[in-house]
């Protein structure tokens, strides 16, 4: 069974990638990828290399935003349009068609988002080179980006199968409430957000983001990371949470009786 699911998922992912290549999508990807280097260039041009917070922090926030935007733009619409679309009945007529379709959409959105983030990071490094070298953070950034894509992708997939055509709105709401508001509250609730764990990985694998230059280090650190977990705890939360959310998502898709918009 696992072999069949794996093979079908790989086939669907590759098919979705081929299917999703279009001029419009490439143009959107380029605009998204150019956003962080453009902002970074403007920042450096205005304040020079004497930036108060770390350049890597500004870059991390920008790339985090681009990653979220990319996933929100491509994953929920990709999933719900399929669930209510023409070919859903064909997917359900395959033994593991529903599972492989959702996973295929999930992984193809991952690939697109990671491509955008890689390009964005490369362009940002090129733009910042006269002022600041960001090359040493490359591996850390890619690692954290990959975990961000996996975790946020799972959350947005779940929202897509729950809310269908309202999924994009729910995804934006989730980011605002959970990832911006709750993740900034120095309390236990912070640990239930994805950003909390990504920040922990970032502090470990990228840099301290210039937090020590912000004055009261204890206060700021507490605001960013309330009662830090050990590193393995963050990995466990991100991987376990992703697997759990994806499992719930697949269970819902398997159980839900969806009627395509073409049926009467």
């Amino acid at each position: 069974m696992l072999g069949v699911v794996l093979q079908a998922t790989i086939a669907t992912t590759l098919f979705e990638l081929r299917r999703s290549v279009s001029g419009q999508k490439i143009a959107i990807a380029l605009v998204l990828a150019c956003f962080p280097p453009f902002i970074m260039y403007m920042v450096f041009r205005t304040v020079g290399s004497d930036i108060e917070v770390g350049a890597e922090l500004v870059m991390a926030v920008l790339i985090w935003m681009v990653g979220l935007l990319s996933l929100i733009l491509w994953l929920p619409p990709g999933i719900y349009s399929e669930l209510e679309g023409q070919t859903w009945i064909l997917s359900t007529s395959r033994p593991y068609g529903r599972v492989s379709l959702i996973l295929g959409k999930y992984f193809s959105a991952m690939v697109w988002t990671l491509l955008v983030l890689s390009l964005s990071y490369a362009l940002t490094m090129a733009v910042c080179l006269p002022f600041f070298s960001l090359g040493e953070f490359a591996l850390g950034f890619m690692l954290v980006s990959a975990f961000a894509c996996l975790a946020y992708g799972a959350v947005f997939s779940l929202l897509a199968v729950l809310a269908l055509k309202r999924a994009m709105g729910f995804a934006v709401g989730y980011v605002l409430v959970s990832e911006i508001l709750l993740a900034s509250v120095p309390a236990l609730v912070q640990k239930f957000t994805v950003r909390y764990h990504l920040q922990s990985l970032g502090l470990e694998h990228i840099s301290d983001f210039g937090l020590d230059r912000l004055g009261d280090q204890g206060f700021v650190r507490n605001l960013v990371l309330h009662e830090p977990l050990p590193l393995w705890g963050n990995y466990l939360c991100l991987i376990g949470g992703t697997l759990l959310i994806l499992s719930v998502c697949l269970a819902i898709v398997n159980w839900r009786q969806l009627i395509t918009v073409h049926e009467t």
Binding site: V4, T12, F15, I89, R94
Partner: peptide, 25 residues
């Protein structure tokens, strides 16, 4: 099924092949 399938940038062969791959072939 009765519903139409329209994937403008995919060939018929590619689509049918993918549909068969979903059986784990």
């Amino acid at each position: 099924p009765a519903t139409d399938v329209y994937l403008p940038n995919i060939s018929g062969l590619d689509w049918v092949t993918n549909q068969i791959c979903l059986y784990g072939i």
